[in-house]
Design a protein around this nucleic acid. Structure first.
Lengths: 145, 145
DNA sequence: ATTAAATCGGATAAAAATATCCGATTTAGC
DNA sequence: GCTAAATCGGATATTTTTATCCGATTTAAT
């Protein structure tokens, strides 16, 4: 569905936002441990998240990462997916045909269109704050038990 | 969604089945041209399709590939996807968590479950014959215009 | 039997995705 | 100012996926 990098990115934003719910800034090590991801790889993805303005970073001693919770409230998951996986999910033909559209469909087009519609709708209607609240409340997990 | 290899595999079965609708056996070159895929790569995937018994092959002069149309009628697309992409689509957690299930869900689990359900239902209810008929009737395309 | 047209299958190459390394930069606290 | 703790960013390494190559085998037609 998503690329591994995108999966990590989503978990990272959720983890950082969850810490922001406690009013706490978190750092690379904590994030990597919190989502069970290699430290160096986590760092690379965090940099993209900072560049894309999904998370805020502070350098130096006591630095780390945090989120603007108001922003998280109005940030659909789709915005993050777009940055890491482009418009693959929303637009690419299931069989990879560039010419595929409703007038010249691939054999699967009609059957897949409603599924894609539902998927996009979930990604657009789910905000990052809600996902972070799932972790905060203890109802959901971000790493293996 | 699907791996590239799986996309090719699906198109190959559709192309071969469509030729079978004309009572014709087709060969590697025609298939590769018909789905605009590299010949050597197409050949490798065809071998897997033969091994998995989705298409029939005949060696030697005038050899080639064909399908049993009765089999295509009762062959859900899902069976092909399973062979090439495993149970990724049907079972893997969207965030890659092995522990993810309805009692210990990842933050996206609940929202994604119905989308997955619809997707699996489409893959199970769509048979390869129907997809081939889409090409046969000229309503659908298998390669760029 | 010989030939030519096919598929088969193992080895390898190329490209893309995933992951790491390390020096540079920044900054809070002393 | 000095130091330690942090992020930043470019280069590189590893792994997986995608794609190719080529000799072996099979077989219809002559």
């Amino acid at each position: 569905m998503f690329s591994l990098t995108c999966e990590h990115a989503i978990k990272e934003v959720i983890f950082v936002a969850r810490q922001s719910l406690d009013g706490q800034r978190t750092n690379l090590k904590e994030i990597a441990a919190g989502i069970e991801s290699p430290v160096a790889y986590t760092a690379k993805i965090l940099q993209q998240l900072v560049k894309s303005n999904f998370v805020l970073s502070t350098k130096g001693v006591n630095g780390g990462f945090e989120t603007d919770l108001n922003k998280m409230k109005s940030l659909p998951l789709m915005r993050i997916v777009e940055v890491f996986d482009g418009d693959f999910i929303a637009n690419r033909c299931v069989l990879g045909l560039k010419s595929c559209n409703s007038t010249h469909p691939c054999p699967l087009h009609e059957k897949y269109a409603p599924v894609r519609g539902r998927l996009v709708s979930v990604l657009e209607s789910t905000c990052m704050l809600d996902l972070a609240l799932g972790i905060y409340s203890g109802q959901a997990i971000l790493k293996e038990l």
